[in-house]
Design a protein around this nucleic acid. Structure first.
Lengths: 210, 210
DNA sequence: AATGATACTGAGCAAGCACTCATCGAAATG
DNA sequence: CATTTCGATGAGTGCTTGCTCAGTATCATT
């Protein structure tokens, strides 16, 4: 038995899985789930086709693996929690930054996952719950709290939150579609978005209260 | 020869094509391009498999057909052109209404097309030019003109326009994902969105200028 | 060296599916 | 009624591709 101690074994297994998932993300993102062949994923990962099946049940399981991995990237984390306390505008800027960063990191995975998600009921439900609904709920709570404090005017909370989330999702899509301004000015987005949804498109930029 | 006069013939051909495209849109939207079989499309359309190939070169040609059809739905039309003249807020409300309507009409087609578009370079370019860029350009011109008139404060025009468009695209996606509030309150969206991006999320709703 | 446990390999299998084509049916014409 | 024309048909074909499994390589252990 070439048996390693279990702890090291786990690490090796994890490394292999990631190696394969990286390849899958790349090939899925480029060709889409269905045009991507297991053969090409294997080649890209530098392993043989059979090896994939030592680590994943089947091709679809690769997608699930990517979704799980993406979810791990999605911890709504510390930096943001701080910003929850500050003033509204700063919170939004922080949140937009946060989102734009995540998208840039996870773009390949998202590009691999999203098209198939849109088209498969099971995945759709899973994705919606795992990504969309969770964030929507948090934002709703935030808005409601701030409205009570009169830091924000009363609005239709669920729809306003959806409009905000749509911007995130949509920006990702426009980026995937290859929009040039988005690519080159990506980092400016948080400021622009914050100005848009906080100050609005109004004639005169009076100073902000609070 | 059962030959009809050419004018009638054209109509018959057009009717068949549409009958098949309807079916394709339905099946693509439900299962996605690749899981959809030509057999099922034929059944749904109530014709035989072979007949499809009398009207379309191949399966991919069905997608192209759907894109063309969608483009015809996309004439940026009269109602909107009127609103171009009015005050800014009303223009946005009109535009949002316009977009939301189009999405509701074309949702099935969009749901059929979009996932494949995201994953195929050729389609991506075509789609981007045909839908995204055209509207972006119009909006940019509008914003710039209004900024010159000082009806809108100076902003980063290209990015602001992208943010707006993202909302459209994103809302469509969230709807496809099955978000409940969007489904049931879809009609309220234009007002909510207009308020959001015109008045912004600010403490106090002073009266709007202009 | 020999043993055994394990992970890796890739040729091959079976299934699924886009597309073809020989045939058919219906309708207009003589 | 016979003939001609043309769209419709669907069983069949060939290719693609996910997945398997019998064989191989690697290496710690004895």
């Amino acid at each position: 038995m070439p048996t390693f101690p279990d702890s090291i074994r786990k690490q090796l297994v994890e490394a292999r899985r990631n190696q394969i998932l990286d390849a899958a993300a790349a090939v899925f993102a480029e060709k889409g789930f269905h045009r991507a062949t297991t053969k090409e994923i294997a080649q890209t990962a530098g392993v043989s086709e059979g090896t994939i099946y030592n680590y994943f049940d089947n091709k679809a399981d690769l997608l699930i693996g990517l979704m799980t991995r993406l979810a791990e990237l999605e911890t709504l984390d510390e930096e943001l929690k701080e910003a929850l306390q500050g003033n509204v505008r700063d919170f939004f800027i922080a949140m937009f930054h946060h989102r734009m960063d995540r998208f840039q990191q996870g773009q390949e995975m998202l590009q691999a996952i999203l098209p198939e998600v849109l088209v498969t009921l099971r995945l759709r439900e899973r994705f919606y719950r795992q990504y969309v609904l969770r964030i929507a709920t948090l934002l709703e709570q935030y808005l409601e709290a701030r409205i009570k404090l009169r830091h924000i005017r009363p609005v239709n909370v669920p729809l306003t939150v959806r409009a905000l989330q749509s911007m995130f999702v949509g920006l990702l899509i426009l980026r995937i579609l290859g929009d040039e301004p988005l690519q080159s000015e990506w980092d400016e987005l948080p400021e622009v978005m914050a100005t848009l949804i906080f100050d609005g498109l109004r004639p005169c930029p009076e100073e902000v209260a609070e």
